[in-house]
């Protein structure tokens, strides 16, 4: 029997630049294969986090929102990042229509917004990030890492 070891930390992000910097820090430290779940309401900074994350890997502009396309993939040097937004999914079963099986063959980092909508189909997360509005402005962010 293997026990999960989780490490939890909490931070305050004062503004957009802080969210970008937090994302960039994780972009440098997280290695594939990784399943990063991003939680937070509309406007909480999930896409800003993703922009920071990708900037650390060399994607400096054009981080298109995956809301409509559901998935945007980046091939950056040795890193592959798939950025997903499941907001528009009516059912987790629809994930099967995305053709993710083909992509999942190679190790990649998966950044997944609204992961709850993929419950039952998505693999377990390795990193869980929750962004929320802080009282008096800025954002609270909590990060949980799981090592199995």
């Amino acid at each position: 029997m293997t026990a999960d070891l989780t490490v939890h930390s909490q931070e305050f992000l004062v503004d957009e630049a802080a969210t970008l910097a937090f994302g960039a820090r994780l972009g440098q430290s997280i290695k594939a294969p990784a399943w990063v779940h991003l939680h937070g309401d509309l406007g909480a900074g999930k896409t800003t986090f993703a922009r920071g994350f990708l900037s650390a890997l060399g994607q400096l502009s054009h981080v298109r929102s995956p809301t409509y396309t559901l998935i945007e993939s980046y091939y950056l040097g040795n890193s592959v990042v798939h950025h997903l937004d499941l907001y528009r999914l009516a059912s987790a079963v629809e994930l099967l229509d995305l053709g993710l099986d083909d992509l999942a063959a190679d190790p990649a980092i998966w950044l997944i917004e609204w992961p709850d909508r993929g419950t039952g189909v998505l693999p377990d997360w390795t990193h869980r990030i929750a962004l929320s509005d802080a009282v008096g402005g800025g954002r609270d962010v909590s990060l949980t890492r799981r090592h199995t």
Binding site: L42, G43, T47, R51, S61, H62, V63, R64, S65, T67, Y68
Partner: peptide, 17 residues
């Protein structure tokens, strides 16, 4: 072109807010 959200998406998300 847009470097982030499409304009229709900005309309839809602002409507939600």
């Amino acid at each position: 072109e847009s470097v982030d959200d499409a304009v229709g998406e900005a309309f839809d998300k602002t409507a939600k807010l």
